[in-house]
Simulated assay, not measured.
Amino acid sequence: MACHTRWACRVDACRVMKDRFPVVVRLLGEIGNEDNADRAVEAKGLLAQLDANFLMKLVVFSDILTKTSQLSNMLQSTDFDLAKAVELTETLISLLEDLRNNPVSFDILWGRIENTVEEQGFDIDMAVSTQRKMKRRLPEHFRDSVMLESVGNLGRSADGDSDTMGTDVKDQIRVNFLYPALDRIISEMNRRFNKKACNIMRSLPSFHPQSPILLEYETMEGFATAYNANREDLVHMHSVKRLLQRREKEGQEPPHSLLEFANSLKPFEEAFRELYRLAKIALVLPVTSAACERSFSTLTLIKTLVRNFMANSRLSILAVLSIESHRVEKSGLVRGQICERAQ
């Protein structure tokens, strides 16, 4: 189950805010007219920020987060396919780069922005602030000189104003808001899903006994190269396949997980030393941090302001029960009995 406290899951909040924007504005207006001064001041402050500029950025974020949500949900699931995750990552990066570099893609997004802003009754030409910056005073020793260009102020025109003030709203949103957001996202994705990481992710399914590409050397080659494995020792992996098939014919339970596969290789460690070493690396290799972040999120949901006075032992027990809920259900014990035994 995906964790609802991650930033990638904010796509639902953006969608609801965009779809319920008139309701939110009307509600804040009603709260602003109440007798409660604190609530009224806070509501009026929020209402002042819900302008056309906010609405345009909301549409942009909704579009970007909608594209990234599918990959985020896949990476947070417990049984996702790593090879498919790599393909989806490459597709997502391509979509984001197309949105940044292809004018046609941005025109489609801009059409949705115009329709949303006009539906809410805003004037899109007044969306971006047109406040003019103060002119820079010329130093006294340059009064009789002619200044052609100043270092560090290439974005200013000759009279000291910002060049972007002469552009339209569409260009300002694209250059000042969309480009920085997309550049940051694309750069971070390229850093996390670099070529080496993607090759490792493509190779990991070849160690899983339930995978159709189990022990295929072509798929495992990227993983073996990353961890300096002796390729000559990996050529005879077909012998491992025959060993697993023979044990299954003899009535032994075949391995169903990567851990069981690594344990089945342990008695034959001397014969398949490199394969066993790679299997252990694949077993402990952390692919995502979703499980760790899900644990932190569980703690914040358990220890709230109302339940602040809680001993560490009880907090630890409740956290384990929540995080390992699937094991609790299989045990057949109710959570109260487990708490009593733990104490």
Rank of each mutant, 00 (worst) to 15 (best):
E253T: 11
M201E: 04
S295D: 03
R202M: 14
E270D: 15
P205N: 02
V240S: 08
E293Q: 01
C198H: 01
R247N: 12
F272N: 10
K196G: 09
C292W: 03
V240T: 07
P209W: 04
I186H: 02
S211K: 04
S289T: 05
T225R: 13
H238V: 11
M237W: 10
L204Y: 00
S264G: 09
V240C: 05
E188N: 13
P286T: 08
R246F: 10
M220E: 02
N194M: 00
A226K: 03
T225L: 14
R246Y: 11
P254R: 06
M237K: 04
D233C: 12
V284G: 05
P286A: 05
V287M: 05
E253C: 09
F296D: 01
T288L: 01
Y227L: 11
V287I: 11
L215I: 07
L214E: 08
I213R: 13
F268E: 13
T219R: 07
E274W: 01
M201P: 01
T219K: 08
K249Y: 07
S297G: 03
E260K: 04
M189A: 03
E274V: 00
R247F: 09
G251Q: 05
M237Y: 09
E293C: 00
F296N: 02
R273A: 15
I200R: 03
L301G: 12
E270K: 15
A290R: 05
I185S: 01
Q252D: 05
K266V: 13
I200T: 07
L244R: 11
R202Q: 11
A229L: 03
E253Y: 06
I185A: 03
N190A: 08
V240Q: 07
N199H: 08
E253Q: 14
V235D: 13
S257M: 06
H256L: 12
L278D: 02
S289A: 06
T225K: 15
A290N: 05
N190R: 15
P286M: 06
E260H: 06
P286R: 05
R192P: 12
D233M: 13
A224D: 03
T225H: 12
E221T: 09
T298M: 06
R247E: 12
L234G: 04
T288W: 05
F268W: 14
A224H: 01
L234F: 07
H238G: 14
E274M: 00
E270P: 12
D233P: 10
E188F: 07
L215M: 08
D233R: 12
L244I: 11
L265R: 06
E274K: 03
S239A: 14
R202I: 11
A197P: 07
N228Y: 13
L299W: 01
